[in-house]
Amino acid sequence: MSHATTTITPPATAAPTTTAVAGPPATRFGRDTGLVLVRELRPVVRDPFSLVFGLVQPLFFLALFGPLLVGSLGGTDVLGGDVWLWFVPAILVMTTLFGTSGTGANLQIEITSGSHERMLVTPMSRSAMLVGRALKEVVPVAAQGLVVVLVMLPFGMRPNPVGVLLTLGQLAVLGVGVGAFSYALALAVRQQEWMFWAVQQTVLFPLMLLSGMLLPLETGPAWMRAVSYADPLRYVVDAARELFAGDLASATVWRGWLAAVLTAAAGLAVGVRAMRRSVG
């Protein structure tokens, strides 16, 4: 995500200043973030089944790609001992990526219908409009991740429970970042809506394949391995695999945290900027 959205700069218009009228800006920001977060979560909580649709694609990968993986690389030591402990963490990252990178479409609906415009004409903090939305991503990410893990238990996968929780935490942070980028994208292309999915798909697949999510990078060409170091997902995928295996604080895991936090920070910065400039 990071690569694409930085190249799309929103049109330069007079950026509104952010002096809040009621109360100091920080209070206003905190309060408004809470309001936005609750508003965004309501439809999810009232209709939790909607989250299941986000699982369709990852579950197909588990069901129809997993066996191929076992068949072709299962006997070798390329994937470590247990294929599922190698593949399921990656599927969790994939779930996070698919879900959160498309979330800007929700904002797009609000922009088209006029409800975003209605919010913009209130004194609500612009940053809160973005941050509240991005924070909401934590809930679907954690819920969907948990479902994937539970689905795999009957198939004999035995991950480290603490490692699973830490993975979900790391993915939640990553999800906030990717979600923020997705909202930034929706705001940047609000005049040409079709661009949203075009850009999302264009960015999503290289990031996914270069992270070593589906097949090990070790068997790929040298250039690919070199490029993969620029993909933040790669670090998160590697960290999740170690966490599932029970290695809770290795250097790889810390690199995963760093990648997730940096993605979140960059996403929020870009997103807040886009939201503040979304006048016009």
Binding site: A14, T17, R39, T112, S113, E117, R118, T122
Partner: peptide
């Protein structure tokens, strides 16, 4: 242009589009 946030605090606006969020409940 210079103090949009003060303007926003003082006005109500019903746009030509629909201000209510599609997936929200009316009272909310």
């Amino acid at each position: 242009v210079t103090h949009p946030e003060r303007v926003r605090a003082a006005i109500g606006y019903v746009g030509q589009g629909s201000g209510a969020g599609t997936y929200q409940q009316v009272r909310d």
